[in-house]
Amino acid sequence: MKNRYSYALLALMAFMVFSCNEKQKPKPEKVKAEVKTANNPAMVPPAWIRKRVEKAQKELLKTEAGSILWKGMEAHGGLATWFGNGALSFRFKYMPLDGGTVRDSYQTINTWSNKARHYSVKDSTDQFGWTGEKAWIKTKDSTSFAYDTKFWALTPIYLMGHPFVLDGEGVNLELLPQTEFKGKTNDVVKVTFAAGTGDAPDDYYILQFDAESHLLTATRYIVSYPEYFKDGGHAPEKIMEVGELVSVDGVLLPNSLKTHWLSDEGGLGEHITTIEITDISFVKELPEDFYEVPESAKILE
């Protein structure tokens, strides 16, 4: 009888050890997903997303200006969806109405670490990009990109990616008085940047959100890029009207933007630039070296 109980006890202990090991062992699909994310620059781990979203929400909800920005993010689909969908791909065609340089490229942007790769619409082998540390260009024809590609690598996402692009470090928010825009009351938040944030920390944006829907309606902004303004200063303030919002994998993004000079009353003045944003999609698979400097590319200082 004693031996029977001893065997039963040993069997129970073995089962308990086996069960604990099984609980601790990660599921095969989880391991596969982590490996895939680690080597795939289009995706970021869910745990990272949760941590960043929780941090952004906590910081933004401390102030009324931040709360308006957070409501805007939620109305546009949510910060977690923005990061979780993958890299953002789109065609951005910037067309000045005064005959200035048209800027037209396909691009794929890593939305959480601000890496970019652009392709010429005429020849996809002509490219430029930003690795997060270095700007580069690779082109057979100097006329393919007749503009400052270092400046332009991330400019499109900072024009069409509001309010999501304002969740990180170095962002300062100020609540401004409500305004009327196209017959509707808008909440207004001014965004400035801490010194050392990006290539143009003196830039600012003034975002207008519909007070009822919390959707972005217009953005006032300046350009202070030091390469353009070597002695300091900035371009005159403009106001950019947000076009139709389209749903892309649960995120609302504009399919067009119209830039105007700011009127004396602070509204839409002369229409000076039209921007078409097409072929918008999120990409979940990219080569591991997608954002690295390609062979024979020139590094831009």
Rank of each mutant, 00 (worst) to 15 (best):
P156F: 10
V188G: 05
A194T: 13
G132H: 03
F282Q: 11
I280G: 14
E74G: 03
I137E: 09
L207A: 10
K140P: 13
A47P: 00
V44M: 04
I239R: 08
H271S: 11
G84A: 00
T219N: 12
F90C: 06
R52A: 13
V171F: 06
L12K: 00
D123T: 09
F282H: 13
N85E: 05
D167N: 10
Y291E: 07
A194H: 09
P41L: 00
D126A: 14
A33R: 02
L159I: 11
L79Y: 02
I49M: 04
G66A: 08
G232Y: 15
L175H: 06
R52S: 13
D289Q: 11
P41D: 00
V191I: 15
F145C: 06
F209W: 05
V242N: 12
N3P: 04
E270T: 09
M13F: 04
G100N: 01
L175G: 07
P41C: 00
T219D: 11
A11F: 05
V283P: 06
I280R: 15
T219Q: 12
L216S: 07
L262A: 10
T149D: 02
G66N: 05
L9W: 00
A80N: 01
L88W: 07
P96L: 05
S19Q: 11
F128Q: 06
T185S: 08
L268N: 07
P45E: 01
Y204R: 14
E285Q: 10
G232L: 13
T125Y: 11
D279M: 11
D104K: 03
G269E: 12
P96R: 01
H214V: 00
S6C: 03
K23T: 14
Y228L: 14
K36C: 00
T185D: 08
W82L: 04
Y119L: 10
Q127A: 02
D279I: 14
Y119K: 10
D104H: 01
N114W: 03
V165R: 11
F92G: 07
K32V: 13
Q178M: 09
G243Q: 15
A146R: 02
A195W: 11
N40F: 00
F209C: 03
Q107R: 04
R50F: 05
T197G: 09
L268T: 11
E241R: 15
T155Y: 12
V44H: 04
K298Q: 14
G86N: 01
S213M: 02
P254L: 13
K55C: 11
T149R: 04
L268G: 07
T111F: 05
D264H: 08
K182H: 13
S142M: 07
D231V: 09
K30D: 08
G84K: 00
G132A: 03
W48S: 03
K27H: 12
F145K: 03
W48T: 07
F128S: 03
A195H: 12
S263G: 08
L88N: 02
K58E: 12
G233D: 11
H214S: 06
A11E: 02
D141A: 11
K30L: 06
F145A: 02
S113C: 00
Y228S: 14
T179Q: 14
I275C: 14
P287Q: 08
V31C: 07
I68F: 06
C20V: 15
T143N: 07
V242F: 09
N21I: 15
V35A: 03
P26Q: 11
